[in-house]
């Protein structure tokens, strides 16, 4: 071993406690960094999973009038396919301050017109209540 290398190792040994402390600080920093990245990644994954489960669209496009046959063509697009959600045009009515269905507080009800051929996954989430339908057979809780 060269004398200059001996110098390096002896001086490193002499300050081994400081070197250890510095190494631990570096290891801690790197660990926290990796944990932060993992947490962030996990949060993104959770969000994606939640949106996927509840059919939350990533892209919204509004238009006045389009045939339903367009859904099939859009679903055929690469990377879009099965996740296309069609929310047909609905009639929104704000009735602020009006009591509705036993609720005491003001409500902003929204009425959405769902054609019968729209896939179920494309329907908006219904936290509670029931679907309105002209046929009692189609009523679901």
């Amino acid at each position: 071993m060269k004398a200059i290398d001996r110098k390096l190792w002896r001086e490193l040994w002499a300050m081994r406690l400081q070197a250890l402390a510095i190494a631990m600080v570096i290891v801690s920093g790197v660990s926290i960094f990796i944990m932060s990245l993992s947490t962030l990644d996990s949060l993104y994954e959770t969000r994606e999973s939640y949106y996927r489960q509840h059919h939350f669209a990533e892209v919204f496009a509004s238009l006045k009038r389009a045939p339903l046959s367009l859904v099939k063509r859009i679903e055929e697009l690469h990377g879009v396919g099965a996740d296309v959600v069609v929310r047909p045009a609905g009639a929104r009515r704000d009735v602020a301050g009006a009591p509705l269905g036993g609720y005491a507080s003001p409500h902003h009800p929204e009425a959405v017109n769902l054609p019968p051929r729209v896939p179920r996954r494309a329907t908006p989430r219904r936290p509670r209540g029931r679907w309105s339908s002209p046929s009692p057979r189609d009523r679901r809780r």
Partner: peptide, 16 residues
């Protein structure tokens, strides 16, 4: 002189 090297090694630093 380099404190962490012996007399011989201090000289060897140059001869190397």
């Amino acid at each position: 002189l380099i404190p962490s090297l012996t007399a011989l090694e201090n000289v060897a630093v140059v001869t190397e």
